[in-house]
Protein backbone atom coordinates (compact mmCIF):
# COMPACT_ATOMS: atom_id res chain seq x y z
CA UNK A 1 0.00 0.00 0.00
CA UNK A 2 2.85 2.33 0.89
CA UNK A 3 4.62 1.57 -2.39
CA UNK A 4 1.41 2.41 -4.22
CA UNK A 5 1.12 5.71 -2.37
CA UNK A 6 4.67 6.71 -3.30
CA UNK A 7 4.08 5.71 -6.92
CA UNK A 8 0.88 7.74 -6.95
CA UNK A 9 2.62 10.84 -5.64
CA UNK A 10 5.40 10.49 -8.21
CA UNK A 11 2.85 10.14 -11.02
CA UNK A 12 0.94 13.15 -9.74
CA UNK A 13 4.12 15.25 -9.68
CA UNK A 14 4.94 14.18 -13.24
CA UNK A 15 1.39 14.94 -14.39
CA UNK A 16 1.46 18.39 -12.77
CA UNK A 17 4.83 19.12 -14.32
CA UNK A 18 3.74 18.41 -17.89
CA UNK A 19 2.44 21.94 -18.68
CA UNK A 20 5.65 23.41 -17.30
CA UNK A 21 7.69 21.35 -19.74
CA UNK A 22 5.53 21.72 -22.81
CA UNK A 23 2.39 23.63 -23.68
CA UNK A 24 1.95 21.93 -27.01
CA UNK A 25 -1.87 21.96 -27.48
CA UNK A 26 -1.94 18.45 -28.92
CA UNK A 27 -0.14 16.90 -25.94
CA UNK A 28 -2.22 18.74 -23.36
CA UNK A 29 -5.42 17.91 -25.22
CA UNK A 30 -4.54 14.21 -25.44
CA UNK A 31 -3.73 14.01 -21.74
CA UNK A 32 -6.83 16.01 -20.80
CA UNK A 33 -9.05 13.59 -22.71
CA UNK A 34 -7.24 10.70 -21.03
CA UNK A 35 -8.13 12.25 -17.63
CA UNK A 36 -11.80 12.54 -18.55
CA UNK A 37 -11.74 8.91 -19.63
CA UNK A 38 -10.01 7.97 -16.40
CA UNK A 39 -12.88 9.54 -14.41
CA UNK A 40 -15.41 7.81 -16.66
CA UNK A 41 -13.66 4.44 -16.33
CA UNK A 42 -13.33 4.76 -12.56
CA UNK A 43 -17.09 5.22 -12.47
CA UNK A 44 -17.68 2.23 -14.71
CA UNK A 45 -15.33 0.15 -12.60
CA UNK A 46 -17.34 0.82 -9.43
CA UNK A 47 -20.36 -0.79 -11.05
CA UNK A 48 -18.20 -3.70 -12.19
CA UNK A 49 -16.87 -4.00 -8.64
CA UNK A 50 -20.31 -5.09 -7.51
CA UNK A 51 -20.40 -7.66 -10.30
CA UNK A 52 -22.61 -5.67 -12.65
CA UNK A 53 -21.36 -5.00 -16.16
CA UNK A 54 -22.83 -2.11 -18.08
CA UNK A 55 -22.50 -2.03 -21.84
CA UNK A 56 -24.33 1.26 -22.11
CA UNK A 57 -22.52 3.75 -19.94
CA UNK A 58 -22.59 6.17 -22.88
CA UNK A 59 -26.20 6.77 -21.82
CA UNK A 60 -25.09 8.07 -18.43
CA UNK A 61 -22.08 9.92 -19.81
CA UNK A 62 -24.38 11.63 -22.30
CA UNK A 63 -27.21 12.34 -19.87
CA UNK A 64 -24.69 13.92 -17.51
CA UNK A 65 -23.38 16.13 -20.28
CA UNK A 66 -26.85 17.11 -21.47
CA UNK A 67 -28.25 17.85 -18.02
CA UNK A 68 -25.27 19.96 -17.05
CA UNK A 69 -25.20 21.90 -20.31
CA UNK A 70 -28.95 22.47 -20.28
CA UNK A 71 -28.85 23.66 -16.65
CA UNK A 72 -26.00 26.02 -17.41
CA UNK A 73 -27.69 27.43 -20.49
CA UNK A 74 -31.23 27.67 -19.21
CA UNK A 75 -30.56 29.06 -15.74
CA UNK A 76 -27.25 30.75 -16.38
CA UNK A 77 -25.65 28.79 -13.55
CA UNK A 78 -21.86 28.65 -13.63
CA UNK A 79 -20.66 25.35 -15.14
CA UNK A 80 -18.56 24.75 -12.03
CA UNK A 81 -21.87 24.17 -10.21
CA UNK A 82 -23.78 22.39 -12.95
CA UNK A 83 -20.96 19.89 -13.43
CA UNK A 84 -21.66 18.72 -9.89
CA UNK A 85 -25.43 19.21 -9.80
CA UNK A 86 -26.43 18.17 -13.32
CA UNK A 87 -25.18 14.60 -13.01
CA UNK A 88 -27.54 14.11 -10.05
CA UNK A 89 -30.15 13.62 -12.73
CA UNK A 90 -27.91 10.96 -14.26
CA UNK A 91 -27.76 9.22 -10.90
CA UNK A 92 -31.57 9.33 -10.77
CA UNK A 93 -31.81 7.70 -14.20
CA UNK A 94 -29.14 5.26 -13.07
CA UNK A 95 -31.26 4.43 -10.05
CA UNK A 96 -34.19 3.71 -12.35
CA UNK A 97 -32.16 1.44 -14.62
CA UNK A 98 -30.68 -0.13 -11.53
CA UNK A 99 -34.12 -0.87 -10.10
CA UNK A 100 -34.97 -2.52 -13.39
CA UNK A 101 -31.79 -4.56 -13.38
CA UNK A 102 -30.90 -5.49 -9.78
CA UNK A 103 -32.68 -8.78 -10.04
CA UNK A 104 -31.00 -9.59 -13.33
CA UNK A 105 -27.87 -11.57 -13.92
CA UNK A 106 -25.00 -10.86 -16.29
CA UNK A 107 -26.59 -11.36 -19.69
CA UNK A 108 -29.83 -9.54 -19.01
CA UNK A 109 -28.10 -6.62 -17.37
CA UNK A 110 -25.69 -6.34 -20.29
CA UNK A 111 -28.51 -6.48 -22.83
CA UNK A 112 -30.67 -3.90 -21.07
CA UNK A 113 -27.86 -1.38 -20.62
CA UNK A 114 -26.66 -1.96 -24.18
CA UNK A 115 -30.13 -1.19 -25.48
CA UNK A 116 -30.65 1.78 -23.19
CA UNK A 117 -27.75 3.79 -24.64
CA UNK A 118 -29.02 3.35 -28.17
CA UNK A 119 -32.58 4.20 -27.21
CA UNK A 120 -31.32 7.35 -25.44
CA UNK A 121 -29.96 8.67 -28.69
CA UNK A 122 -33.30 8.10 -30.41
CA UNK A 123 -35.04 9.96 -27.58
CA UNK A 124 -32.65 12.91 -27.52
CA UNK A 125 -32.96 13.58 -31.24
CA UNK A 126 -36.75 13.27 -31.22
CA UNK A 127 -38.61 16.31 -32.50
CA UNK A 128 -40.75 16.53 -29.38
CA UNK A 129 -37.64 17.21 -27.32
CA UNK A 130 -36.12 19.62 -29.77
CA UNK A 131 -36.79 22.67 -27.55
CA UNK A 132 -34.63 21.06 -24.88
CA UNK A 133 -31.90 19.21 -26.74
CA UNK A 134 -31.86 20.89 -30.17
CA UNK A 135 -31.88 17.50 -31.92
CA UNK A 136 -28.95 16.58 -34.15
CA UNK A 137 -27.78 20.21 -34.21
CA UNK A 138 -26.64 19.87 -30.62
CA UNK A 139 -25.86 22.46 -27.96
CA UNK A 140 -22.95 24.72 -27.27
CA UNK A 141 -21.61 24.17 -23.76
CA UNK A 142 -20.44 27.17 -21.70
CA UNK A 143 -16.81 27.18 -20.57
CA UNK A 144 -16.05 25.72 -17.17
CA UNK A 145 -12.96 27.90 -16.93
CA UNK A 146 -13.79 31.43 -18.09
CA UNK A 147 -11.90 32.27 -21.30
CA UNK A 148 -10.15 35.22 -19.58
CA UNK A 149 -7.83 32.75 -17.90
CA UNK A 150 -4.75 32.48 -20.06
CA UNK A 151 -3.51 30.14 -21.38
CA UNK A 152 -6.84 28.39 -21.28
CA UNK A 153 -5.60 24.92 -22.18
CA UNK A 154 -3.26 24.84 -19.20
CA UNK A 155 -6.05 25.86 -16.83
CA UNK A 156 -8.26 23.22 -18.43
CA UNK A 157 -5.54 20.66 -17.97
CA UNK A 158 -5.17 21.39 -14.29
CA UNK A 159 -8.93 21.46 -13.73
CA UNK A 160 -9.28 17.99 -15.24
CA UNK A 161 -6.24 16.70 -13.39
CA UNK A 162 -7.75 17.92 -10.12
CA UNK A 163 -11.08 16.28 -10.95
CA UNK A 164 -9.28 13.02 -11.73
CA UNK A 165 -7.39 13.10 -8.45
CA UNK A 166 -10.59 13.78 -6.50
CA UNK A 167 -12.40 10.92 -8.25
CA UNK A 168 -9.50 8.57 -7.75
CA UNK A 169 -9.25 9.39 -4.04
CA UNK A 170 -13.01 8.89 -3.70
CA UNK A 171 -12.70 5.54 -5.41
CA UNK A 172 -9.80 4.68 -3.06
CA UNK A 173 -12.04 5.28 -0.08
CA UNK A 174 -14.84 3.23 -1.62
CA UNK A 175 -12.46 0.34 -2.32
CA UNK A 176 -11.11 0.36 1.22
CA UNK A 177 -14.35 0.74 3.11
CA UNK A 178 -17.20 -1.49 4.20
CA UNK A 179 -18.99 -0.33 1.07
CA UNK A 180 -16.26 -1.67 -1.21
CA UNK A 181 -16.10 -4.87 0.76
CA UNK A 182 -19.84 -5.32 0.35
CA UNK A 183 -19.55 -4.71 -3.41
CA UNK A 184 -16.76 -7.26 -3.75
CA UNK A 185 -18.64 -9.83 -1.70
CA UNK A 186 -21.71 -9.42 -3.90
CA UNK A 187 -19.54 -9.81 -6.98
CA UNK A 188 -17.86 -12.96 -5.72
CA UNK A 189 -20.93 -14.62 -4.28
CA UNK A 190 -24.25 -12.94 -3.84
CA UNK A 191 -25.64 -15.68 -1.65
CA UNK A 192 -22.70 -15.48 0.73
CA UNK A 193 -23.11 -11.71 0.84
CA UNK A 194 -26.74 -12.06 1.81
CA UNK A 195 -25.93 -14.66 4.44
CA UNK A 196 -23.38 -12.24 5.92
CA UNK A 197 -26.13 -9.69 6.31
CA UNK A 198 -25.34 -7.49 3.31
CA UNK A 199 -28.53 -6.03 1.90
CA UNK A 200 -27.54 -6.97 -1.63
CA UNK A 201 -30.32 -5.11 -3.40
CA UNK A 202 -29.53 -1.86 -1.60
CA UNK A 203 -25.81 -2.13 -2.28
CA UNK A 204 -26.24 -3.01 -5.92
CA UNK A 205 -28.46 0.03 -6.37
CA UNK A 206 -25.95 2.15 -4.53
CA UNK A 207 -23.17 1.04 -6.86
CA UNK A 208 -25.43 1.94 -9.79
CA UNK A 209 -26.03 5.40 -8.37
CA UNK A 210 -22.37 6.11 -7.60
CA UNK A 211 -21.16 4.74 -10.90
CA UNK A 212 -23.66 6.60 -13.06
CA UNK A 213 -23.09 9.82 -11.14
CA UNK A 214 -19.35 9.67 -11.82
CA UNK A 215 -19.97 8.81 -15.47
CA UNK A 216 -22.28 11.84 -15.66
CA UNK A 217 -19.64 14.10 -14.16
CA UNK A 218 -17.13 12.82 -16.71
CA UNK A 219 -19.58 13.58 -19.51
CA UNK A 220 -20.25 17.06 -18.19
CA UNK A 221 -16.54 17.80 -17.82
CA UNK A 222 -15.80 16.53 -21.32
CA UNK A 223 -18.17 19.06 -22.85
CA UNK A 224 -17.72 22.03 -20.52
CA UNK A 225 -13.97 21.83 -20.69
CA UNK A 226 -12.78 20.10 -23.82
CA UNK A 227 -15.17 19.78 -26.71
CA UNK A 228 -17.79 22.48 -26.07
CA UNK A 229 -20.07 21.21 -28.82
CA UNK A 230 -22.48 18.60 -27.45
CA UNK A 231 -24.35 16.51 -30.02
CA UNK A 232 -26.28 13.23 -29.80
CA UNK A 233 -23.15 11.54 -31.18
CA UNK A 234 -22.17 11.25 -27.52
CA UNK A 235 -24.48 8.23 -27.22
CA UNK A 236 -22.49 6.33 -29.84
CA UNK A 237 -21.68 2.70 -29.10
CA UNK A 238 -17.99 3.55 -29.01
CA UNK A 239 -18.54 5.85 -26.02
CA UNK A 240 -19.89 2.85 -24.12
CA UNK A 241 -16.94 0.72 -25.13
CA UNK A 242 -14.16 3.04 -24.00
CA UNK A 243 -14.47 2.65 -20.22
CA UNK A 244 -14.80 -1.09 -20.68
CA UNK A 245 -11.71 -1.33 -22.88
CA UNK A 246 -9.71 0.91 -20.56
CA UNK A 247 -10.78 -0.89 -17.41
CA UNK A 248 -10.36 -4.40 -18.78
CA UNK A 249 -7.08 -3.39 -20.39
CA UNK A 250 -5.83 -1.79 -17.21
CA UNK A 251 -7.11 -4.39 -14.78
CA UNK A 252 -10.77 -5.11 -14.09
CA UNK A 253 -12.04 -4.73 -10.56
CA UNK A 254 -8.83 -3.15 -9.28
CA UNK A 255 -8.39 0.34 -7.91
CA UNK A 256 -5.59 1.39 -10.27
CA UNK A 257 -6.80 -0.53 -13.35
CA UNK A 258 -9.10 2.09 -14.89
CA UNK A 259 -6.63 4.93 -14.28
CA UNK A 260 -3.63 3.08 -15.71
CA UNK A 261 -5.66 1.70 -18.60
CA UNK A 262 -7.20 5.04 -19.58
CA UNK A 263 -3.95 6.94 -19.64
CA UNK A 264 -1.72 4.33 -21.28
CA UNK A 265 -4.28 3.06 -23.76
CA UNK A 266 -5.59 6.49 -24.74
CA UNK A 267 -2.07 7.75 -25.44
CA UNK A 268 -1.34 4.60 -27.45
CA UNK A 269 -4.61 5.04 -29.31
CA UNK A 270 -3.85 8.68 -30.13
CA UNK A 271 -0.42 7.67 -31.41
CA UNK A 272 -1.85 5.00 -33.70
CA UNK A 273 -5.13 6.26 -34.93
CA UNK A 274 -3.81 8.88 -37.34
CA UNK A 275 -2.05 6.22 -39.38
CA UNK A 276 -4.47 3.39 -38.80
CA UNK A 277 -8.02 4.52 -39.61
CA UNK A 278 -10.40 1.58 -39.47
CA UNK A 279 -7.47 -0.71 -38.79
CA UNK A 280 -6.99 1.11 -35.49
CA UNK A 281 -10.43 0.04 -34.31
CA UNK A 282 -9.84 -3.51 -35.55
CA UNK A 283 -6.59 -3.48 -33.63
CA UNK A 284 -8.43 -2.24 -30.55
CA UNK A 285 -10.87 -5.13 -30.83
CA UNK A 286 -8.06 -7.65 -31.25
CA UNK A 287 -6.24 -6.08 -28.30
CA UNK A 288 -9.33 -6.46 -26.12
CA UNK A 289 -9.81 -10.08 -27.21
CA UNK A 290 -6.16 -10.90 -26.55
CA UNK A 291 -6.23 -9.29 -23.11
CA UNK A 292 -9.27 -11.36 -22.20
CA UNK A 293 -7.82 -14.57 -23.54
CA UNK A 294 -4.19 -14.22 -22.51
CA UNK A 295 -3.87 -11.56 -19.82
CA UNK A 296 -7.06 -11.31 -17.77
CA UNK A 297 -5.31 -9.16 -15.14
CA UNK A 298 -4.67 -6.39 -17.65
CA UNK A 299 -1.70 -4.04 -17.86
CA UNK A 300 -1.73 -3.62 -14.08
CA UNK A 301 -0.84 -7.28 -13.64
CA UNK A 302 2.11 -6.80 -15.98
CA UNK A 303 3.36 -3.89 -13.89
CA UNK A 304 2.84 -5.83 -10.69
CA UNK A 305 4.66 -8.80 -12.17
CA UNK A 306 7.42 -6.76 -13.79
CA UNK A 307 10.18 -7.65 -11.29
CA UNK A 308 9.60 -11.39 -11.62
CA UNK A 309 9.27 -11.11 -15.40
CA UNK A 310 12.59 -9.34 -15.62
CA UNK A 311 14.28 -12.04 -13.59
CA UNK A 312 12.70 -14.72 -15.71
CA UNK A 313 10.35 -15.95 -13.03
CA UNK A 314 7.22 -15.05 -14.99
CA UNK A 315 5.39 -18.20 -14.02
CA UNK A 316 2.73 -19.90 -16.01
CA UNK A 317 -0.17 -17.84 -17.26
CA UNK A 318 -3.48 -19.07 -16.11
CA UNK A 319 -6.74 -18.22 -17.77
CA UNK A 320 -8.62 -16.91 -14.81
CA UNK A 321 -10.51 -13.72 -14.65
CA UNK A 322 -9.54 -11.17 -12.11
CA UNK A 323 -11.84 -12.40 -9.40
CA UNK A 324 -14.90 -12.10 -11.58
Amino acid sequence: MKKGFVAGIILLVIASAVPMITQEPYILQTLSIAYVFAIYSIGWNILALSGQVSLGHAAFFGIGAYSSVILARAYGLPPAITVVVGPLFTALVGLGIGLLCVRLKEWFLAMVTFGFAVIMQAIVVDDQLRWLTNGWDGLLAPHLIPPEFEPLRVWNYYALLAATVITYVASYFIFNSRLGLAFKTIRDNELVARVCGVKTMRYKLLSFVISTYIAGVAGALQYHVLFRFLSPEVFHLQTSFWPLIFTVGGGLGTLEGPLIGSIILWIAWEAFRAIAGFYGLIGLGIFLALVIILMPGGIRSLIARAPSLIYGLGGRRKIISQGM
Binding site: L281, L284, I293
Partner: peptide, 28 residues
Protein backbone atom coordinates in the same frame (compact mmCIF):
# COMPACT_ATOMS: atom_id res chain seq x y z
CA UNK B 1 -13.47 -21.69 -27.16
CA UNK B 2 -10.27 -20.48 -25.44
CA UNK B 3 -12.17 -18.70 -22.68
CA UNK B 4 -14.94 -21.26 -22.27
CA UNK B 5 -15.78 -21.77 -18.62
CA UNK B 6 -13.80 -18.81 -17.26
CA UNK B 7 -16.63 -16.41 -16.59
CA UNK B 8 -19.69 -14.95 -18.22
CA UNK B 9 -18.23 -11.49 -17.97
CA UNK B 10 -15.26 -12.50 -20.10
CA UNK B 11 -17.64 -13.80 -22.73
CA UNK B 12 -19.50 -10.49 -22.73
CA UNK B 13 -16.26 -8.57 -23.19
CA UNK B 14 -15.14 -10.91 -25.91
CA UNK B 15 -18.28 -10.41 -27.95
CA UNK B 16 -17.78 -6.65 -27.66
CA UNK B 17 -14.28 -7.09 -29.06
CA UNK B 18 -15.92 -9.01 -31.89
CA UNK B 19 -18.25 -6.08 -32.58
CA UNK B 20 -15.27 -3.77 -33.00
CA UNK B 21 -13.38 -6.23 -35.17
CA UNK B 22 -16.30 -7.17 -37.43
CA UNK B 23 -17.71 -3.65 -37.90
CA UNK B 24 -14.41 -2.19 -38.91
CA UNK B 25 -13.22 -5.14 -40.94
CA UNK B 26 -16.41 -4.81 -42.96
CA UNK B 27 -15.78 -1.09 -43.27
CA UNK B 28 -12.29 -1.77 -44.61
Amino acid sequence: RPIKGTSKINEIFLSLALILILQNAMAV
